[in-house]
Nucleic acid binder design. Structure first.
Length: 263
DNA sequence: CAGCAGGGGGCGT
DNA sequence: CGCCCCCTGCTGG
C-alpha cells in the first residue's frame, strides 16, 4: 500500500522500479526466457520455486488446502480458493468491493472489473505496466490506481524519449538519482467530452497547475504519445517538490485513464 | 451479452 | 505471498 518513487528504469521497456532489486527481478521475470524449475509430471516449467509448488498442487488428486474454521469441511486445490471461501462464508464479506471509477458499478473481483474497464470504457494498459492496479480508498472501495511515482530524472528521460520517438536509452546510474517525486497520471477526459487532443507540439508542453492546499504546485507535462501497440494515448507527468512522502492524492483530472483514441 | 466464479499461471513486492 | 492475468462454464436478463 506504500507509495514508492521509481528511480530505476528497465533498459528494455518502460517499466520503472523503486529499487535495484525489484528492477533485477523485473528483468528476470519479464525479459528472460529461462525456466529452470520444471515439473516432473508434465512439460510445465517456470521461473521460481513458489510457482512450481503451486503448479504441483494442481497434480494432486486430493485438495491440498483446507479451511481451518471450526467444523468447516471446505477444501480446495488452491490456497486462494480457500481464502476467498473464508472471507465470503466466515467473514460475511460478500459485497462487491471493486468499484469502477467511471460508472460506479461494483464487482466482486478485480479481474472482473478489469474486463469491464477494457470492454466498456476501452481502457488500455500503460506501456511498461503489464496490468491494472487497484487501490483501496477511504470508503473501502478498490478503484483503479491512476498514479505512479518516478524520479525527476526518469521523467525527463521519458519525456526526451517520447519527443525523439527513438530507442530506449540506457538505465540511469544510481548516483544521478534524487528523492524528488514524480507522478505519472495517464489521462483522458471523462466520458462526456470525447477528447480531441491535437498537437500540443510547441516546444514546452508543460502546464503549471496548483494542486491541493498543502502540496507545492506541481508541474504537469502533457504528452501525446504512441504506445507499444501503436495507439495514441495521453499521459500527464506530474513533478512535485516534496522529497519524502508522496503527497495527498491530489485529485487527478476527472476521468483520467489509459484510454486510447485509436480503434 | 454482462457479470460471477473456479482453476491455474505470471510476476511485482 | 498476494494481486492480477487469462480461460472457461454457468446464469440471468
Amino acid at each position: 500500500m506504500r507509495n514508492h518513487v521509481n528511480h530505476y528504469k528497465c533498459p528494455l521497456c518502460d517499466m520503472t522500479c523503486p529499487l535495484p532489486s525489484s528492477l533485477r527481478n523485473h528483468m528476470r521475470f519479464r525479459h528472460s526466457e529461462d525456466r529452470p524449475f520444471k515439473c516432473d509430471c508434465c512439460d510445465y516449467s517456470c521461473k521460481n520455486l513458489i510457482d512450481l509448488r503451486k503448479h504441483l498442487d494442481t497434480h494432486s488428486k486430493e485438495p491440498a488446502y483446507r479451511c481451518d474454521f471450526e467444523n468447516c469441511s471446505f477444501s480446495a486445490r488452491s490456497l486462494c480458493s480457500v481464502k476467498s471461501h473464508y472471507r465470503k462464508v466466515h467473514e460475511g464479506d460478500s459485497e462487491p468491493r471493486y468499484k469502477c471509477h467511471v460508472c460506479d458499478k461494483c464487482f466482486t473481483r478485480g479481474n472482473n472489473l478489469t474486463v469491464h474497464l477494457r470492454k466498456k470504457h476501452q481502457f488500455k494498459w500503460p506501456s511498461g505496466h503489464p496490468r491494472f492496479r487497484y487501490k483501496e480508498h477511504e470508503d473501502g472501495y478498490m478503484r483503479l490506481q491512476l498514479v505512479r511515482y518516478e524520479s525527476v530524472e526518469l521523467t525527463q528521460q521519458l519525456l526526451r524519449q517520447l519527443q525523439e520517438g527513438s530507442d530506449l536509452g540506457a538505465s540511469l546510474s544510481e548516483s544521478s538519482l534524487q528523492g524528488t517525486i514524480l507522478e505519472t497520471v495517464p489521462g483522458e477526459p471523462g466520458p462526456q467530452e470525447e477528447a480531441e487532443e491535437e498537437e500540443e507540439g510547441r516546444g514546452d508542453e508543460a502546464t503549471a497547475l496548483s494542486a491541493s492546499q498543502d502540496t507545492p504546485s506541481p508541474v504537469i507535462h502533457v504528452v501525446n504519445q504512441t504506445n507499444a501497440q501503436g495507439e495514441r494515448e495521453i499521459v500527464y507527468y506530474v513533478l512535485s517538490e516534496a522529497p519524502g512522502e508522496p503527497p495527498q492524492p491530489l485529485s487527478p483530472p476527472q476521468g483520467a485513464s489509459w484510454k486510447s483514441f485509436g480503434e
